[in-house]
Amino acid sequence: MQRVNMIMAESPGLITICLLGYLLSAECTVFLDHENANKILNRPKRYNSGKLEEFVQGNLERECMEEKCSFEEAREVFENTERTTEFWKQYVDGDQCESNPCLNGGSCKDDINSYECWCPFGFEGKNCELDVTCNIKNGRCEQFCKNSADNKVVCSCTEGYRLAENQKSCEPAVPFPCGRVSVSQTSKLTRAETVFPDVDYVNSTEAETILDNITQSTQSFNDFTRVVGGEDAKPGQFPWQVVLNGKVDAFCGGSIVNEKWIVTAAHCVETGVKITVVAGEHNIEETEHTEQKRNVIRIIPHHNYNAAINKYNHDIALLELDEPLVLNSYVTPICIADKEYTNIFLKFGSGYVSGWGRVFHKGRSALVLQYLRVPLVDRATCLRSTKFTIYNNMFCAGFHEGGRDSCQGDSGGPHVTEVEGTSFLTGIISWGEECAMKGKYGIYTKVSRYVNWIKEKTKLT
C-alpha cells in the first residue's frame, strides 16, 4: 500500500490518463441519441435557420407576430419608411378606419389613436360632414345658397324668414311668412316636400332668348283662358290664391305678392273693366268669414305684352289694390325667389296649380277651390304637342294621358313649387288646347323671366 501511494504521488498524470480511459469505455446513459432527441424537440425550422439574422431580410411573422416588435424591426421587413409607417399605425392600436367614419364618399386613412378623412370636392370637416359648395344638395341650405369668396357655403332665406341657429334652416321672422300653410287642420295635408338634388348652379339658368321682337298675326285659340281631375282644397291650404270678379264672377285667378299687390295673367284683364279681388276665398257660393274683398285701382301688364300681336306672350300683369290686405292664416303671400332659384325650383319637376275653373272641358265651374299636382314636361315634348308657338318664356306641365289639367277660369292662378315646406311661385296658368285632352298640356308663363320686374313694381313704400 505504501508503494502504491508513492507511485500516485510521483505520477499524477498517469492516474488522470487511467481515469479518462475508464470513462470513455463506459456506456453513456444520461444523453439520448440524435434521433430520439429530435422526437422530443420537434420544432419547425425557421426561415433563416442556421444563418445569422443580421444578414437576412426581415420576416413579418418572425419579427412582429411571434413577439412584439419595434418600429426598427418592422422597418427591416418593409425596407421602406412609408410602408412601415402605414403598417405601424394599425399594428400599434388597430384600424381606426374600420367603422368607416368618413361621410359623403370620403376616404379614410388610419393613424395612431386617430384617423384622417380625405374629402371629395365640396366637403370638409373631420368626417367630411361639412358642405362647402352650393353645387351639392344646395349646400344643405333649406332655401338659398351662395358661395363666399373663400368658396364656403353661405345660406340665406327669402323675405319674412331668418336663418336658424344651425345656419342652414329657415324659420319665420314674421307672423305670416310667405308660402307657408298655417291653418292647423290643413298642415297635415301639406304636399310632399321637395329635397334639393345635386345641381350645376353655374349652368342652372337656361341660355334662352326671349323672342321679344317676333311679330306674329293673332292666333285663334280655343278655350285658351284655361282644375280638371283635381281635388277639393281645404280652407287655408292655398292662402296665396285669390279669385278675380268682373263682368262675371271667378273669371280668373291670381296670387298675393304682398298686402297691396296681386300677380295674374295679362290676358285676364281689360282696361276700363272694374275688377274686384277676393282673398281668403274657399267656396265661392258661401260666406265663410275668411274672405277679404278689395278693388283694383291700377293694372300693370308687362311692358312687352301686346294682345294685338299675341294674347299669351309675356302673359303676366300686376294688380294694385285700393287697401292693403290683412295677412292671416287664410290670406298669405306666395314666396318669389330670384331668377336663378325660381328656375331651379321649376326644374324640380312638379308643381301645384289651383283655381275655381271648370271641372271638365266646357263644363261647370268649381264651387270649392280645386288643386292638382302636375309634372313638368320637357321642352321637346311640349313643342311636338301643339302647332302653336311655345315661346321661351312659357313652359308645359300636365299629363300625356289627359284627364287632369287646369281649365277655363283658372287662368292667372299660381303654379307653385314647394321647397322644404315653403311654396314659391314658378308659373302662372296661361293657356292650353281644350282641357285635359290626351297628348295636350297646360301652358304656363315662366315666372323666372319676370321676377325682377315683379319685385321692382310691387315694392311697398
Rank of each mutant, 00 (worst) to 15 (best):
N5A: 14
M6F: 13
I7N: 14
S11K: 15
I15R: 06
I17K: 02
C18F: 14
L19A: 05
G21A: 14
G21R: 04
G21P: 05
Y22K: 03
L23D: 03
L23E: 03
C28T: 09
C28I: 02
C28E: 03
T29K: 09
F31Y: 15
H34W: 07
E35K: 08
A37E: 02
N38R: 15
N38L: 09
K39H: 12
L41C: 04
L41Q: 15
R43D: 10
R43Q: 15
R46F: 07
Y47E: 06
Y47L: 12
K51A: 12
E54S: 15
Q57S: 12
E61L: 11
R62C: 02
E66P: 06
C69I: 03
F71P: 12
F71N: 15
E76A: 04
E79C: 04
E79M: 13
N80S: 15
E82N: 13
T84V: 06
E86P: 15
K89V: 08
K89S: 12
D93N: 06
C97V: 01
C97M: 01
S99A: 06
N100G: 05
G106P: 00
S107Y: 06
S107G: 04
K109M: 07
D111I: 07
I112N: 07
S114Y: 07
C117H: 00
C119R: 00
G122H: 04
G122K: 03
F123V: 04
E124I: 05
K126R: 10
N127Y: 05
C128Y: 00
E129S: 02
D131Y: 12
N135E: 15
N138R: 05
S148V: 07
A149H: 10
N151Y: 12
N151P: 08
K152S: 10
V153N: 04
V153S: 06
S156V: 05
C157P: 00
C157W: 00
E159Q: 07
G160C: 02
R162N: 09
L163M: 05
Q167K: 05
K168G: 04
E171A: 10
A173F: 09
P175I: 06
R180Q: 07
R180W: 04
S184I: 13
S187P: 12
L189F: 12
A192K: 11
A192Y: 11
V195Y: 13
D198F: 09
V199F: 12
V199I: 10
Y201L: 09
Y201N: 13
N203M: 11
I210E: 12
D212M: 08
S217G: 05
S217F: 12
Q219H: 13
N222C: 04
G229C: 10
G230N: 11
D232G: 05
K234D: 10
Q237A: 08
F238A: 04
F238G: 02
W240V: 00
W240S: 00
W240C: 01
V242W: 01
V243A: 12
G246K: 05
G246H: 08
D249P: 08
A250H: 12
G253W: 08
G254N: 00
S255F: 01
I256F: 01
V257Q: 00
E259K: 07
I262R: 01
I262L: 03
H267C: 03
E270G: 08
T271C: 05
I275W: 06
G280N: 02
I284V: 11
E288P: 06
E288N: 06
H289T: 11
K293T: 11
N295Q: 11
V296K: 02
I297W: 03
A307Y: 10
A308N: 09
A308Y: 10
N313T: 10
H314Q: 03
L319M: 15
D322A: 07
P324D: 05
V326D: 13
V326A: 10
N328W: 02
S329H: 07
V331Y: 00
T332F: 04
T332S: 11
C335G: 01
I336L: 12
D338N: 11
N343M: 06
N343E: 15
K347L: 07
F348L: 07
G349P: 04
G349T: 04
Y352M: 05
V353P: 01
V353A: 06
S354G: 14
G355A: 14
W356I: 09
G357H: 11
R358G: 11
R358W: 07
V359I: 13
F360H: 14
G363A: 07
R364T: 14
S365D: 12
A366W: 08
L367I: 10
Q370V: 03
L372K: 14
L372D: 11
L372A: 14
R373N: 11
V374L: 04
V377S: 03
T381Q: 13
C382I: 03
C382T: 02
C382D: 01
L383D: 06
T386A: 12
T386F: 10
K387H: 12
Y391A: 10
Y391H: 14
Y391S: 14
Y391R: 14
C396R: 02
D405V: 06
C407W: 14
G413W: 10
G413L: 06
V416I: 09
V416C: 06
E418D: 15
V419P: 01
G421A: 07
T422W: 01
G427D: 01
G427I: 02
G427R: 00
I429Y: 14
W431P: 07
W431D: 10
E433K: 08
C435M: 03
M437Q: 13
K440I: 03
G442W: 05
G442E: 04
T445L: 12
S448L: 02
R449I: 05
Y450H: 03
W453H: 01
W453M: 01
K455C: 04
K455F: 06
K459H: 12
K459Q: 14
